[in-house]
Design a binder for these strands. Structure first.
Lengths: 219, 219
DNA sequence: GGGCGGCTCCACCGAAAGGTTGAGGACGGC
DNA sequence: GCCGTCCTCAACCTTTCGGTGGAGCCGCCC
């Protein structure tokens, strides 16, 4: 199952570097190498590679716009697009991801990371350059930093407690939870009480709120 | 320049798996392998490895707390800590990073990614599991809400009902809600019962879930 | 004026959740 | 074997919710 890759970058040097790096992998093949966005879209549509590795800065059509055409909302049979750029700008990251890109790489990354990213992208999963991630995370969680640092001992939830918490967040009663987990209501209440203490909350709604906030449950 | 690694995980299987993966690299060496947090801290301080690979759930001292002791604010000569866990919880990510960890990995990652993460950590840079990153980013840039838009309710909520619903979603009891809105508990219960009927849900947790899902309240 | 919808409140009751204490079994580490 | 953690269950009690059926008040509109 060879991973077929399209490379689009206006710099000849970058194209060949990426090509050589990916060429070291027996299961990867560069099926096209182009220098501008229009050709990238054209070739991508024709060849339907497993991964499109696009630079942002390109003549004719930039990588972000090309991404939208290949993977954006409303496109049927979207392709897997990886954005690679020298410029670490939040604006680029947002636009890339909202245009359907499934990865965002900086060109100072290691070859191994590029390979990992391409492999991840080929299955539709994502990889974002560490530097980008960290910067974004620091924006996401600045408010929590202070409150978290002085917190004495964060007691992690056990598996079972987590099970109960999830079901609570889905609106189930203790009876229902007991039935679903094949335990008695007493057990459910025990787990719930422990989770409540560990999370430092007062009732099940706050438990549910925690679950939603932290992504334990979705929707 | 060998990268010296400490592994801490309560599961023997995981420790040996990590050890074997890292052992394939000529420039990496596992200098310690322990099963609980206290030993991790103790060995880390003594051996000063280039990277500490810590599980979160461990006896004696969990990985997050161990991280704080080894790399947290106020620690001089902090070590490079990588957190590895089965549980993809935002709460864990926040704490790990605010406690000084320079990476956050899920145990379902590929071996190549582990190696990359360790290599990144050894120089103090960061790597976070793709799945984590994507979820966090999707929160950061909520421009992608396309499917399952809640259709307008057959019976819309009144202003007052919405007030009550919001407070419910924030985890307040009926008493507290009454106090905040300067009405009696009876009134709160009336609004709540009406909202419950209109939203076709069974209890306040589901009301809260609706509020979170539709964005009536935010995290 | 009369009707209607929204907001307020009451009383009563059963159901559900919250809090506490205690206890037993399984499992793994020391 | 001992100890710690986790999972399990029980009994008891208080608090909170959920459900029902009322009621009065206000503003609006026909």
């Amino acid at each position: 199952m060879t991973i077929r890759v399209l490379i689009a970058d206006d710099q000849e040097m970058i194209r060949s570097a990426f090509g050589m790096i990916l060429g070291t992998q027996p299961d990867m093949e560069v099926v096209a190498s182009v220098a501008d966005g229009e050709r990238a879209v054209e070739q991508a549509r024709r060849l339907r590679p497993d991964v499109c590795l696009l630079d942002i800065r390109m003549p004719a059509l930039d990588g972000l716009e090309a991404t939208r055409l290949l993977a954006g909302p409303g496109v049927d049979a979207p392709l897997n697009v990886l954005i690679a750029t020298t410029f670490d700008l939040d604006e680029y990251v947002y636009r890339a991801l909202s245009n359907g890109a499934c990865g965002f790489l900086l060109k100072d990354m290691s070859p191994a990371l590029l390979i990992e990213a391409v492999r991840a992208a080929s299955t539709g999963t994502s990889l974002i350059s560490p530097a980008v991630t960290v910067r974004l995370l620091s924006k996401l969680a600045p408010a929590r930093q202070d409150s978290t640092v002085d917190r004495p001992l964060p007691e992690p939830l056990t598996d079972r407690e987590l099970d109960v918490v999830k079901l609570v967040a889905n609106g189930h009663t203790n009876d229902e939870i007991g039935a679903k987990l094949y335990v008695s209501v007493a057990t459910v209440k025990t787990h719930l009480a422990n989770a409540q203490r560990k999370l430092a909350v007062r009732n099940r709604v706050e438990i549910a709120a925690w679950a939603w906030r932290t992504g334990v449950v979705t929707g």
